[in-house]
Design a protein around this nucleic acid. Sequence first.
RNA 1: GGGUUCGUAGCCUAGCCUGGUAGGGCGAUGGUCUCCAAAACCAUCGAUCGUCGGUUCAAAUCCGAUCGGGCCCA
Length: 370
Amino acid sequence: MSADEFIVTPWHVEGDIDYDKLIEKFGTQKISPELLEKIKSMTNEDHFMLRRGIFFSHREMNRILEDYEKGNEFFLYTGRGPSGHTHIGHLVPWVFAKWLQDKFDVNLYFQLTDDEKFYSKTNLTLEETKKFAYENALDFIALGFNPEKTKIIINTKNIQTLYPIAAQVAKKINFSNTKATFGFTNETNIGMIFYTSLQSAPCFIEDKPVLIPLGVDQDPHFRLTRDIAQKIGKQKPALIHNIMIPALTGPGGKMSASEEKGTIYTTDTPDVVKKKINKYAFSGGQPDIEQHRKLGGNPDIDVSYQYLRIFFEPDDSKLKKIYEDYKSGKLLSGELKAILIEKINEFLKTHQEKREKAKQQIEQFLLENK
RNA sequence: GGGUUCGUAGCCUAGCCUGGUAGGGCGAUGGUCUCCAAAACCAUCGAUCGUCGGUUCAAAUCCGAUCGGGCCCA
């Protein structure tokens, strides 16, 4: 695969992603300065993930905001395919969703697609994906969502609620649509073919517009949803997309929950975090200290720096100093890694405590079938 | 229901026709080198060849059954 090639699908991400090209390819909208300004004025906050382009693209986010200003409330929807334990990259859209919920005081649905991971991963059983769904739910709850306004959907558990909606959707999507959208072939099992209608279902679970913060790789599902929304008398879901979080071992792919090494899990101990970062994090440093002092490092490809930018250092001035110091060669890669390790462990310490408490709270978050 | 094809280390795969206990690539691990990581270079680990049975002195290789995956037809 050459440098300018990349693949982004809901099941596979590969290569060095050019996000401008991706916007063009997917037909989404880049988040404009005007939109940023609008969000800022409506929330009274300049969220670092927006400011820094971690969320970089959208579909009709402006419509959602305009409607909201007219007094029409929306709701939020995001989710996770429970194919493994939660890693820090998964937290990006969730944290952002939490922020949106706080700012707009709206309902949020979180879908755990245990059926989909069972369909798409040959080596996972339904029992395993259900178990991961529970584990992932704990991480989600640990972020502090409002239980009054937040419901967790587990596909196999909530099928009764989802199915009537999914049926409406499924009738409007034919095999050619899914083939074109997802690259399905005759080998694809029929669970996968139907599945997209279940991922669409929560979009219409309330009779209000929906805004979906999510990783851009999941966009294709909602492209289909948007295509058929009017046909079933519903509004198109609006989306806001975040970039793929690079694996520890380097750019050229998102963090995969199935690759132990290149991944920081939310349950990792401080020692493990330290070891993983030091041992695996791809650096933008020079081959030796002398050259590094002289030539400086490249924070733009340095994974440790990227993690700080994406998640762990919301303070712009601190981040800027790290950027400049690293670029100038003042800051060594080992030192940069130490900063990140400290930040991650600080975060995980409280996260893990909240995650423990979540075991007691989970019941009140799970959606009840009506 | 009929047909067909495949099942070899974590992954991909050679070998099967012409039986003599398996070879490669990726990955992983360790080392050298680096402030780390990467790259590079060394080195190492790893498969009783889906399962059961048969033929044979000897089977991943032949035969039968069975389980599992794929495709085609109905």
